[in-house]
Amino acid sequence: MIAPDVDAALRAHLVALATERRYAPNTIEAYGRDIRQFLAFLAEHLGAPPDAAAIAALPARDLRAFLAARRREGAVDATLSRKLAAVRGFARRLARDAGVEMSGIAAVRGPKRRRDLPRPLPAPAAVALADPATRADEDKPDWVLARDAAVLALLYGAGLRISEALGIARRDAPLEAGGRLTVVGKGGRTRAVPIIPAVAQAVRVYVGSCPHPLPADAPLFRGEKGGPLSPRIVQGVMAQLRGGLGLPESATPHALRHSFATHLLARGGDLRAIQELLGHASLSTTQVYTRVDAQSLLAAVEAAHPRARRG
């Protein structure tokens, strides 16, 4: 149970995240879950559902105790950082609505997150993943193999996120090479992605073989029973493919997006252009790929140059 003033503020906060901040539905759901978990913790800790005044009076140690409890349950740094961001954002909203200060919550800092380098795939492996011939021996309908190949081709050949690929409507299907696909990414940011011949061909083969109706305003990619294709199906396909191709666990659908950026950069792509293609709000997010590329170049030199190795 949540105190009425806190419940009203939470509902308004989640609506604002969707309409003003334009957060993705999955993010809003996660934030709402995190905040409710924190409020349930406080209700048990304080003996009653806290109102705005009780939350404002919380010392920093109570929020730290909440995070410590989640840590004991197995939450990693990234999850704890998200929970803290969710609670602090809601506290700011509650402070404005109730006219109070949340000094205790504001004083808590999250764990310092280490930014791991993206782990792209070798180009031949990325190409093989998007080739339906790689799965020719599977007992699957040809249209399903074509569908999966088209989705993976969009991830690698256009740098899309899986949610962006599965969000394409039939009317926007990228069927022509040289055209552009308009994508709405994180934060509601819109970008235009050029379509290369291999991607257009993969999508055309899928559209031509799909046995289900594809209304113009409905999702382009369909499940075997005709409903919208689930991201879990694509993740399962990748898991099966990486097993067959001997790829590491890091070979996920998102790794194809990393591969798109890294391979473009390795071929002399402009960093600003790659930022626009990926839909990154900040260039610093894209710059991580320069570290990946430098690392791969160093590995290539060490493997091939006769004087690279010591001893």
Score class of each variant (00 low, 15 high):
residue 218 A to F: 11
residue 285 T to M: 10
residue 9 A to P: 01
residue 203 V to W: 09
residue 206 Y to R: 10
residue 311 G to Y: 03
residue 61 R to P: 01
residue 235 Q to L: 11
residue 150 A to R: 04
residue 141 P to A: 10
residue 151 V to N: 09
residue 141 P to R: 09
residue 165 A to C: 10
residue 172 D to A: 15
residue 160 L to H: 04
residue 95 A to K: 09
residue 299 A to L: 12
residue 122 P to I: 03
residue 212 H to W: 15
residue 2 I to K: 01
residue 236 G to F: 00
residue 19 T to V: 12
residue 33 R to N: 08
residue 29 E to P: 01
residue 234 V to L: 09
residue 300 A to E: 10
residue 276 E to P: 01
residue 184 V to A: 13
residue 307 R to Y: 05
residue 86 A to G: 14
residue 288 V to G: 02
residue 69 A to E: 15
residue 9 A to W: 01
residue 106 A to E: 15
residue 209 S to P: 04
residue 114 R to F: 05
residue 279 G to F: 03
residue 275 Q to R: 08
residue 32 G to W: 05
residue 160 L to T: 08
residue 89 G to Y: 05
residue 163 S to C: 07
residue 138 E to H: 12
residue 143 W to P: 10
residue 309 R to Y: 00
residue 297 L to E: 09
residue 36 R to G: 07
residue 241 L to Y: 10
residue 190 T to G: 08
residue 178 G to P: 10
residue 90 F to L: 07
residue 10 L to A: 03
residue 284 S to H: 10
residue 72 R to C: 06
residue 25 P to E: 13
residue 102 M to F: 07
residue 170 R to Y: 05
residue 295 Q to H: 04
residue 242 R to M: 10
residue 134 T to K: 10
residue 59 P to L: 04
residue 219 P to L: 04
residue 150 A to D: 12
residue 14 L to R: 06
residue 140 K to A: 14
residue 48 A to Q: 10
residue 146 A to H: 14
residue 52 A to D: 04
residue 221 F to Y: 06
residue 172 D to S: 14
residue 212 H to T: 12
residue 227 G to A: 14
residue 201 Q to E: 15
residue 89 G to W: 06
